[in-house]
Amino acid sequence: MSESKIWGLLAQYENPAEIYHASEKVRDAGYEKWDACAPFPVHGLDKAMGAKPSKLPWAVLLIGLTGSSLMLFFESYTSGYAYPFIVGGKPLFSLPAFVPVWYEMSVLSSCLTAFFANWIMSGLPEPYHPAFASKAFERVTDDKFFIMIEAEDAKFDLEKTKALLADTGATLVEELKP
């Protein structure tokens, strides 16, 4: 099997402590195109991996504010201009009475952004991934922990990377095909 046909390497670990220390080693070895997978977010593992904080809050803030201002404009426009009609003695532009809907739509636009941005930023839905071919990887959503290093990584070298993974205490190292 030639190296070019390999997508990457998959290494299995048994518990959060192992993957934590292994991730530190892989990070320190200078790899960039690699990932750790776990059945739950392991506290501190993102730092051990050197992952950057998510930019998601900015998207939420931006779109949330936009949605919020659009709604206030829309309420003022429909009630005050497009269909001016006094009901219950309330002025056409009644800011206090606009607050509830204004507020709800701010929340809705922010939450929709958070929801969709979450999947988009992670590249999901992703129906196929090379790791899915591995039988062992089925337990990533149960109780096993994995590190994958992509062959595309500049530092990737089949033998050396394998050795590194074995050295980090992996209980299993597999080659993944694209």
């Binding site: 219950g88 003695g89 309330k90 206090p96 009475a97 607050v99």
Partner: peptide, 12 residues
Amino acid sequence: AFSQFILIWYAN
């Protein structure tokens, strides 16, 4: 504060 205000303002 808003709850108190809007209820009193609205019912008038």
